[in-house]
Computed example of a mutant assay.
Amino acid sequence: MKKFLTSPRIWSVIRTIRPWVTMIAVIAILRYTGLLAGISVVAQSALMKTGVLDASPAPPAVARDFDYDFSVKDLNNNTIDFKQFKGKTIFLNLWATWCGPCRAEMPSIQQLYEQIDHEKVVFVMLSLDRAEDTEKVSRYIKDKGHTFPVYMPSGYLPEQLNVPSIPTTFVISPQGKIVSKKAGTANYNTSGFKEFLEKM
């Protein structure tokens, strides 16, 4: 055993893997404590200030019909049939409290929300947190001073909303077409994006 531990080859392997083990341990600790999301928010927010992440309408390859056949619930646990939003432009953002990139783009969404005619454009901030975390979601929104409408799934979500990553933002036209889909953090508080929403 002693010979094994003093072998130059073993120490060479240990020296090679030590930085990787350390990095994995640090990431695991940050993830477990929730600090990783905080670091992500700071980094994403800094990028947003440069203008690199300014949103521009990103139409999907094929303008598909949006499936309105599902329900959401508000933070007071009232069930809302999504069909009630038909005929209006919908800004639909999928997010979660534990998602750093989601949290980073929320101030820009709030600023956009404050400038938009809510008779024409409906905001649906759909939290994908667990159903039992409604209070956590509500507290987060209140603490940040966000006033846009926040909802959570009420059971089934259509296939279109089963996205591989969040944040993901859809814009649905009054005619029921998905006219824009953006995965990842973006700054939505731009004159171009506001004009895009208002001209539909």
Results as ranks from 00 to 15, higher is better:
Asp67Gln: 08
Leu92Thr: 06
Val52Phe: 12
Cys102Phe: 05
Ala46Val: 14
Ile109Cys: 02
Val52Gly: 00
Glu105Ala: 04
Ala25Arg: 07
Ser56Ala: 09
Lys73Tyr: 06
Lys49His: 11
Ala37Gln: 10
Asp81Tyr: 10
Leu92Gln: 08
Leu92Cys: 04
Gly38Met: 09
Pro19Tyr: 05
Ala28Gly: 13
Asn77Gln: 14
Val72Asp: 07
Gln111Glu: 08
Leu112Glu: 03
Cys102Thr: 09
Gln84Ser: 14
Phe91Val: 08
Ile39His: 04
Gly87Leu: 07
Glu114Val: 00
Cys102Tyr: 08
Leu30Ile: 03
Tyr113His: 13
Gln111Ser: 09
Ser56Val: 13
Ile24Pro: 00
Leu47Asn: 12
Lys73Asn: 11
Pro60Trp: 00
Ala43Trp: 13
Phe85Thr: 06
Met48Ile: 15
Gly87Ser: 11
Leu92Trp: 08
Ala28Ile: 09
Phe66Leu: 05
Tyr113Cys: 01
Pro19Phe: 04
Val21Glu: 10
Val41Arg: 11
Thr22Asp: 00
Arg18Thr: 15
Gly38Trp: 05
Glu105Leu: 01
Ile27Asn: 02
Gly100Lys: 06
Gln84Phe: 01
Asp81Lys: 15
Arg15Met: 12
Phe85Glu: 04
Gly38Asp: 14
Pro57Phe: 11
Arg64Lys: 14
Phe91Arg: 08
Val41Ala: 04
Trp95Ala: 06
Ser71Asp: 13
Lys73Ser: 10
Ile39Asn: 01
Ser40Gly: 07
Pro19Thr: 05
Ile24Phe: 10
Pro101Gly: 02
Asp69Thr: 11
Glu105Ile: 02
Thr97Arg: 06
Ala43His: 13
Thr97Asp: 04
Val42Leu: 12
Phe91Gln: 10
Asp54Arg: 10
Leu53Lys: 07
Asp69His: 13
Asp67Ala: 04
Leu35Tyr: 11
Ser40Arg: 11
Phe66Gln: 09
Pro60Ile: 01
Arg103Leu: 10
Gln111Thr: 01
Asn78Met: 00
Thr33Gly: 09
Lys49Met: 13
Gln115Trp: 01
Ala25Leu: 15
Ala55Asn: 03
Tyr32Phe: 12
Ser56Ile: 12
Arg15Asn: 10
Glu114Leu: 08
Ala61Pro: 02
Met106Ile: 08
Pro101Phe: 00
